[in-house]
Design a binder for these strands. Structure first.
Lengths: 116, 116
DNA sequence: CATCACGGTATCCTTTTTGACACTATGGGC
DNA sequence: GCCCATAGTGTCAAAAAGGATACCGTGATG
């Protein structure tokens, strides 16, 4: 998303905007979506999301973590092992994620989505 | 939102992404949100959304129209009169908009939103 | 010894988005 | 005649986001 408003900046003030600023980013929703089903490691996410680069994935994960939507757990092992999972707050996004998916499934039947 | 995926491009294929690409843009959600309550004219929207510039508002409205989410009606008058309202498809987004707002209201109490 | 996997970083470049600002047509009001 | 409002458009430039590519350390594998 071009970018939503900077972190919780009460412009129009509405919570919708603030909410959006947290899930704004080309991959965030997908990441959250994949994590709905459970914990995943960095490269598992990478494989589940075709097209994302390492840099982008790292970047988006860090932002999600900073916004308290996901939890990052590092295991001091070699090779490194880092697990990502939804935080309580992230889990509370489930209804939104599902509403979005439902809408997409219902109103965007692949290509013939031109009928207003 | 920096930008979601280009128009309905089945990357991860998931409908969530496609749905997002339609509502991606710094002002789209707010516009749709304002229109939930009914038809509005260009300058009414402009006044309701502080911070948006004429160019941006026009731009976002055109994209929403192109995606079939809103309807634009021009009255051949002077001064010009253009009314915007949600299309059927746009209206079907209501659950998503509300879920988002509800989540925002519930999980983002202004500033103390740091608790994971 | 060379290579692979893991989970990143760092750097550079391009594309996309957004913002600033000026300009337009027309009719009415003063 | 001059100014106002409406609903834009056009151009330019800045900022932000995203992508490509290379590199790192370590231990196990072959």
């Amino acid at each position: 998303m071009p970018r939503a408003v900077k972190k919780a900046q009460t412009s129009t003030g509405c919570s919708v905007e603030r909410a959006l600023s947290l899930i704004d980013g080309k991959w965030k929703i997908v990441i959250l979506y994949k994590l709905l089903r459970g914990t995943l490691r960095f490269n598992e996410l990478r494989r589940l999301i075709p097209g994302v680069t390492q840099r982008m994935l790292t970047h988006q994960l860090r932002e999600l973590e900073a916004d308290g939507l996901i939890v990052r757990v590092v295991y001091a092992q070699v090779p490194p092992r880092v697990e990502y999972s939804l935080s309580t707050r992230g889990q509370s996004l489930e209804p939104v994620l599902l509403a979005l998916k439902h809408w997409g499934d219902t109103n965007l039947s692949s290509r013939e989505a031109e009928a207003a």
